[in-house]
Design a protein around this nucleic acid. Structure first.
Lengths: 188, 188
DNA sequence: CAGAATATACTGATCGTTCTATATTGATCG
DNA sequence: CGATCAATATAGAACGATCAGTATATTCTG
């Protein structure tokens, strides 16, 4: 039972960090809800910071894989549509209090260079995925266009706690057609 | 010197809470950097929570007033353009690590119903201001349209820590013309 | 038997908040 | 102008709680 405990710790930490915040969630809370001893956590992870980094990597990797699969299985629909639809599904499914990576950058920008750097790296991966999707649709796949599309998707994440995830996702999905034109405008 | 200390506390708290986070910033840090005794803080504010609420109100009120003034002084430019331009200026001016209200909702959604409620109330005020601007331009000023515009502006805030505030603002400004069509689409 | 997980206690630090006792201030009044 | 007095600010100790992380010794388990 060595991998099982580690998995339980990661799942519990992900839930607590996401819902309650990173600084606001203590190690004791994590181990208590995971049902493991405190030393078991420090046996698997050298520090809280390392645990956070692995939680971020895991969750965002899962998200990116889902997006990629949605693109791969898009059938006749455009890749960007498949991507945004999948993002909207993700938005609705999770308790949806925003993006965990954005939250991590916000909390650790001035407290952990490692976590902040990792957060930005993950978002850059996301930008790459968006550019690939644009290229699949024979659209201009420059960095600026991808960034503008991501900007709008992040807006939906950010407003989810204010408007509710369903309403935020609806807006994003409704805007999508017109948005593609707005994102591909020249100059910038 | 009773108003001066209070002002100094609010300004210092605003800076620290915004840059370092709410949970990560202790009372001791606030009073030390404000150059004030700890009991002076508790003489002016009943609790850290109350201090946070006043900081949020203050900062967002300042922001809303700036937006309103930009609209009032818009001259020949459309109200929405004046509003977004002002938002972009705000984005560039501040250290710009996102919106303090969104950050507060994220950190306190499960820890302070009061702060979370106040955050949502402030964002609703912002939506009202956007609807007024839409009406001034003789555009459809329904709630959904305003929410979609806010969604995009929030996206620029959120991506500022990733792309840098200048680049995020540029994207928002560039998208604006096409965006207005994308936001006013029927159905939702 | 060995590797892993356990419970428990401990470190030193910090958290938000309160208390106390002293010092400083600003306004009122003689 | 100078004395008085109440409000305000001060430093510092203390509160119990929690923080991240470590040490140890015991128990479980493959």
């Amino acid at each position: 039972m060595q991998a099982g405990k580690r998995e339980e710790l990661l799942a519990t930490a992900e839930r607590l960090f996401y819902e309650e915040g990173f600084h606001a969630t203590g190690i004791d809370r994590v181990v208590a809800e995971a049902g493991v001893a405190r030393m078991t956590l420090y046996n698997h992870f050298p520090s809280k910071e390392a645990l956070i980094e692995e939680v971020l990597e895991r969750r965002f990797r899962r998200y990116l894989v889902e997006l990629q699969e949605a693109i791969d299985d898009r059938g006749a629909t455009p890749a960007i549509t498949a991507l945004v639809d999948c993002h909207c599904r993700w938005l609705r499914s999770a308790s949806s209090e925003g993006c965990i990576v954005i939250k991590a950058i916000a909390e650790f920008e001035h407290h952990s260079a490692g976590i902040a750097r990792q957060g930005r790296r993950l978002k850059q991966e996301m930008l790459g995925l968006i550019r690939d999707a644009l290229a699949l649709d024979d659209r201009p796949a420059d960095a600026a266009t991808a960034e503008r599309l991501l900007l709008t998707m992040e807006g939906a994440n950010t407003l989810a706690p204010v408007l509710g995830p369903g309403r935020a996702a609806d807006h994003l999905r409704t805007m999508l057609p017109g948005l593609l034109d707005a994102c591909s405008v020249e100059s910038a």
